[in-house]
């Protein structure tokens, strides 16, 4: 182990970690928005739109992110739709994550029992109030563990974006191996960097999960 090399490479990794985190942040945020909208479309069985959403979910869940990114980045460029690598990566993550988040939200919405909804209706709540005060609070507490797992999944999936030349953690490690042949050092730093990012998030999610478990009706 060449510790001088490791110390010198720290700024590179910090910069790369910023790229990874930034991409994940936007990817997860967009996924949440897309997923939430899609789950509502399916929950209310909006005509036509529900079918479109279902097709999107199946397409996105049954293909790998790497292929989606290549298709978006290299494929679409040739028919006139050009993305920058950065926006392409965010778009790809949102495309993939949206369907996973939609499934998480949907299972939460479906877990709210009929009795709850009927009770809400019988005390005279309108549809909006029913959603806001009865369904969503319960759906969220059921969906939180899945949402958290998806967020971590998306964060890990960002490692793939190095394939379309974005300078994330993976890319920097590859670069250092290629340029200086410092394989052990570069890979150790890579693992350490991912652990620094992922361990606290993973622990935080376990904590949140324990907190919301008491929120379900009847517990």
């Amino acid at each position: 182990m060449d510790f001088d090399f490791i110390v010198k490479s720290i700024p590179l990794y910090v910069k790369a970690a910023e790229v990874t985190l930034e991409l994940s942040f936007w990817g997860i945020l967009l996924s949440l928005i897309i997923g939430f909208i899609c789950s509502l479309v399916i929950y209310y069985k909006v005509k036509l739109l529900a079918q479109v959403v279902q097709i999107y979910i199946e397409l996105s869940r049954n293909t790998p992110l790497l292929i989606q990114l290549f298709f978006l980045y290299y494929g679409f460029a040739k028919i006139g739709i050009k993305f920058e690598a950065y926006s392409c990566a965010i778009f790809g993550l949102a495309f993939l994550g949206g369907s996973y988040m939609a499934e998480a939200f949907r299972s939460g919405l479906e877990a709210v029992s009929k009795i709850q909804i009927e009770t809400g209706l019988s005390v005279g709540l309108n549809r909006w109030q029913l959603m806001r005060y009865i369904i969503l609070p319960q759906a969220f507490s059921v969906a939180i563990p899945a949402i958290g797992a998806n967020a971590i999944f998306l964060l890990k999936e960002t490692s793939v974006v190095s394939a379309i030349a974005l300078a994330d953690l993976m890319f920097v490690a590859k670069d250092l191996i290629g340029m200086y042949y410092k394989t052990t050092e570069a890979l150790t730093m890579l693992v350490v960097a991912y652990l620094i990012i992922l361990l606290p998030i993973s622990l935080l999610l376990t904590f949140i999960e324990r907190k919301v478990r008491h929120a379900g009706f009847g517990n």
Binding site: N62, T63, I67, F71, G75, F76, A77, K78, I79
Partner: peptide, 20 residues
Amino acid sequence: PSASFWVYACIFALYFIICY
């Protein structure tokens, strides 16, 4: 020139056909 679009679309479809 549009080969990359069709080839990647094809690979995308192949994965879908297997996983779906």
